[in-house]
């Protein structure tokens, strides 16, 4: 399935994403999906601590954050990022989708939750919803996104 590229309203450039997951396989899989939406991967991180540093370094438009990770779990990392950057858009992406997890993540500042395995059509709609008026779907199918 082809998706219309999601671009930033401010400068018509691809949305920049930070992908956080302790699984390299999961990061590659999510990145591939985001690139099919015309997105650009600003950075990747394999744990919560690195995610915080990478957020400061790359200032992405959106963070896709796993929950179960070594060293620092995703919900705590999301809380710390949002505390320092209230404008941060963090979407939790986890196979563990029960209500307590979702509520905890939203209470700590996450904007949305997507359950793994990620369905591209679901993630596409969540990104559109979370970006709101800061992004639009361009005419035509998305090309592969720019990298870093």
């Amino acid at each position: 399935m082809e998706y219309a590229a999601l671009l930033r309203n401010s400068d018509h450039q691809p949305i920049r994403y930070l992908v956080v997951d302790d699984s390299v396989f999961a990061r590659k899989n999510i990145s591939k999906i985001l690139e099919s939406f015309g997105g650009a991967i600003a950075g990747e991180a394999g744990d919560g601590c690195t995610a915080i540093a990478e957020y400061d370094r790359t200032r992405p438009d959106m963070v896709l954050m796993d929950i179960t990770m070594p060293q620092m779990e995703g919900i705590e990392a999301a809380e710390r990022i949002v505390r320092q950057h209230p404008e941060a858009r963090v979407v939790m992406v986890s196979s563990v989708g029960y209500q307590e997890n979702i509520v905890a993540a939203l209470q700590k500042g996450a904007r949305h939750f997507v359950q793994k395995p990620v369905k591209p059509e679901v993630l596409y709609e969540v990104i559109k919803y979370v970006m709101g008026e800061d992004a639009y779907a361009a005419q035509g199918a998305a090309a592969a996104g720019e990298s870093k």
Binding site: S23, V24, F25, A26, N29, T68, S94, S95, V96, G97, Y98, Q99, E100, Q115, K116, P117
Partner: peptide
Amino acid sequence: DPVVRETIFELANLVIGNAVTSLND
């Protein structure tokens, strides 16, 4: 390839995560 190990680990993660979600319900 190390990706093979990563793939099986992530599959395990997906299966257990989804099962735990169901049991939590």
